[in-house]
Amino acid sequence: MSAVGSLKQTGLLRRGVLLGTILLIYVFLLVPVAMVVLTSFTGRAFPAIPYDGISLQWYVALMTDSQLLGALFTSFVVATGAAIIAVIFGTIAAIGFVRAEFPYKQQLSTIMLLPMIISPVITGIALIRYFGQINVNAGYPTLIIGHSILGVPYVFLLVRSELVTFDNDLEKASRVLGADPTMTFTNVTAPIISPALLSGLFIAFIVSFGEFTATQFLIAPGTSTVPVEIYDMLRTGLTPEINALSTVLVVIMVLAAVLSRYLER
């Protein structure tokens, strides 16, 4: 601890400059989102800081906009479906990669991470053209499968790091006591890694819920998602209704993230 102490023995001025810099970095990091949320409560016709009192009129406008409510529904269905598929395949791959030994294992596991490395624009056009070839309909099927692919790397990394610390003797004990591999999985392995699975479920949900870039290629008429609606509204001009819709999205995503973090403990 004395090393930390020695680093703390800096001049008051230097410390002030450091604290100021740190504060500015946090302002830089957090103000954009705060601004979006704050200005959604304006009573005016453009996004403004609501000095003259809080108004919920843009949320009321949101509630009566059937197109936006439809997009919210689509986003929920797609994110839920995509998250479930991502957790299934991400977990299967993570278990396999942690326990199997074979040549070029490390290199092969990079494939599981490719969807987070390749630009989502490329993912979007590649998927929609390919889906056309193999006769998958644009709309829910392309959105759910596409988003599940984007969520898989996150689930894979999360579950794999959880499994690395897993005590393999527990499974051996289960096998010795007469359980078959599947029974061992359902009764021993799954309960231990399930917090990581649930956490991965919420992360994949968040990835899908906020995705725009690949999504713009995967939608069909009638299956627009919330980020796509926000993008379209931004094209036509700034109204606080965009802020209200964004705030709803922020609340849902932060809620999912908090649940995920809570489950991870």
Binding site: L29, L30, V31, P32, V33, A34, M35, V36, L38, T39, F46, P47, A48, I49, Y51, I206, F209, G210, E211, F212, T213, P227, I230, Y231, L234, L238, I242, S246, L249, V250, M253, V254, A256, A257
Partner: peptide, 27 residues
Amino acid sequence: VPLWIAYIIRYFGVLLFFSPTGPLAQS
């Protein structure tokens, strides 16, 4: 926390920040 929030919303926030009709310019 910002990682939990959609990119489009964060870019929208930066847009608001610099926009001539945005809250900073207005207030």
